[in-house]
Simulated scan of single mutants.
Amino acid sequence: MELDPLYTDTVIRRWQALTGDAARHVETGETFEAVAAARKGDAVQVGEAVHGAYAAS
């Protein structure tokens, strides 16, 4: 099953709001906020994996 990244982002944001934890990318360790900012072009350096698995910190 594939989901549009927009839906996945919404789920991650809701999970973070509910738990108070920060989602982190499993491979890079980057926070969800850092990856989201990089996608928008707000960050200077972008990790290799933009889409991928996230885990609770």
Rank of each mutant, 00 (worst) to 15 (best):
V35C: 03
D42R: 12
Q45S: 12
W15L: 14
W15V: 02
R24C: 10
Y54L: 08
L6M: 08
G41N: 05
E27V: 13
I12L: 15
Q45M: 08
T31R: 04
F32R: 02
V26I: 07
R14E: 14
H25C: 10
A53E: 14
Y54E: 03
R13Q: 14
Q16R: 05
V26D: 01
A22V: 08
V11C: 11
A34N: 02
A38Q: 01
A36W: 10
H51L: 13
V46Q: 11
G41Y: 01
Y7N: 11
D4L: 06
T19Y: 07
R14A: 14
T31W: 06
A17I: 01
Q16H: 00
L3R: 15
I12F: 03
K40M: 10
S57I: 00
E27N: 12
V35E: 01
A38W: 11
V44R: 10
G41H: 10
D21K: 10
T28V: 02
E27I: 10
A22R: 09
Y7I: 10
A34K: 01
D42W: 15
E48W: 08
V44M: 13
L6F: 11
F32V: 03
V11H: 09
E48L: 12
G52C: 05
V50H: 03
W15Q: 02
W15K: 04
F32T: 02
A22P: 01
A55E: 13
V46H: 09
T10Y: 11
T28Y: 08
T19H: 06
A36I: 07
Q45D: 14
A43G: 00
A38T: 05
G52D: 10
Y7E: 14
S57R: 14
L6N: 13
A38I: 00
E27F: 09
E48K: 14
D21W: 06
A55K: 08
A36F: 10
V50L: 09
T10P: 00
A17L: 11
R13N: 14
V11D: 06
V46R: 11
R39E: 11
F32C: 03
E48H: 11
R39G: 06
G47E: 15
E27G: 04
P5H: 05
T19L: 04
R39Y: 04
V26W: 07
R24A: 14
G20M: 07
G29I: 13
Q45W: 11
K40H: 13
A38E: 04
D21I: 01
Y54I: 02
T10M: 15
T19N: 08
Q16A: 03
F32E: 00
G41D: 04
A36M: 07
V26Q: 06
K40D: 06
A23G: 07
S57W: 03
T19E: 01
E2Y: 12
E48R: 07
D4Y: 06
I12P: 00
A22C: 07
E48T: 13
E27L: 13
R39W: 05
Q16N: 01
H51E: 09
A49V: 12
A34T: 10
V11L: 12
M1Y: 03
A22F: 04
W15P: 01
A53K: 12
E30L: 08
R13G: 05
D4Q: 05
P5R: 15
E30P: 00
A56Y: 06
A43M: 11
T31F: 04
L3Q: 12
G41W: 03
A17M: 05
R13A: 15
P5I: 14
E2N: 12
T31D: 08
A55T: 12
A43D: 13
A36Q: 04
R24G: 00
H25T: 03
M1K: 14
G41K: 11
